Amino acid sequence: MDVFSAMGVFVRVVDLKSFSLAAAELEISSSSVSKQIAHLEQHVGARLLQRTTRRLNVTEIGSAYYEQCQKIISQVEESENLVSQLQGKPQGVLRINCNMTFGQLLLSKAVPEFMEAYPDIKFDITLEDGDVDLVRDSFDLALRITHPQLPDSSHIAREVASIPMYICGSPKYLELKGCPKVPQDLKQHNCLIFMLASNTNSWVLNGKDGRETVQVTGDLKANNGLLVREAVLAHRGLACLASFVIERFVEAGQIKVLFPEYEPERLSLYAIYPDRKYTSPKVSLFIDFFKAWLADNLHQEFLL
């Protein structure tokens, strides 16, 4: 039995809380997963997992062993990263976790170009919103849009791009309800709220007299920017959305950006990765590539 390989299988079973999900991710059969866990338990002389038809529980010994397995796997990966650095040839699988909408609209376009340039690097990408544990979930890199000031963390965070947030609406809605002239007019409108944006229902504009924040309300709240955009296109109200979410609809005249005399609030896209002694060349290479790619492809200003 390959003990190190079995450790990797064990870690993924615990992370995913499922033999079948671990088997699918590792591209092996469920029976192979079961056999490796059984052999590992026999090797260490202790029960690591308690499995029933409905649940999978980690024993006390299994929990302690899991933590040690994680450390061992991390150390091996760092050793391989060091060798890769010294060889100067980025390779292997790059595991990325990214915000859902940003991943669908921008990351999805950049990755094929990167793969064309660096065929020795493969990708394993998960799109989801919310927090992620990079170490526990075995991600090399997370891409997150948030305020320019990140909270303190044990991870390294590199700012990759600035994301302008525009207040906008459809021409038909503005014709029916009137176009707000100053930020405080937004209080009289149905404002559609993107819940995962850091500004949520406090929309910010920067004018010649300084920063102005408006508390807005409306009949729709959603945790997906594309859903909010569709409501804007259906003439339901106004929204504050990222430039990359509305760009092609602004250009087509289906969405109008408001308050041209104000500077929109800007959020930051961060590349976040574990603070390790050796950063994998594939991580550094992709971040540098993606930063340059976004500089060429991320619309910063609309011609209003």
Rank of each mutant, 00 (worst) to 15 (best):
M1Y: 08
A6T: 04
V9E: 00
V9S: 01
V14C: 05
D15Q: 14
L21T: 07
A22I: 03
L26E: 09
I28S: 05
S32P: 04
V33A: 04
S34A: 12
G45M: 00
R47H: 06
T52K: 07
T52V: 12
L56E: 03
G62R: 00
S63G: 02
A64C: 05
A64N: 07
Y65K: 05
Y66V: 08
I73P: 05
S74D: 11
Q75T: 09
S79Y: 15
L86G: 07
G88Q: 00
P90F: 08
L94Y: 04
N99R: 02
F102G: 00
V111K: 01
E113S: 11
E113A: 14
F114S: 02
I121V: 15
F123D: 08
E128G: 12
L134P: 01
T146A: 07
L150F: 12
I156F: 12
S170I: 04
K172W: 02
E175N: 09
C179G: 08
P180M: 11
P180E: 11
Q184I: 14
N190L: 03
C191Q: 02
S202Y: 14
K208M: 11
R211Q: 12
V216Q: 04
R229G: 03
A234F: 04
A242H: 04
I246L: 05
F249I: 10
P264S: 08
E265A: 11
Y270V: 05
P281C: 06
K282H: 07
V283M: 02
L298A: 01
L304A: 15
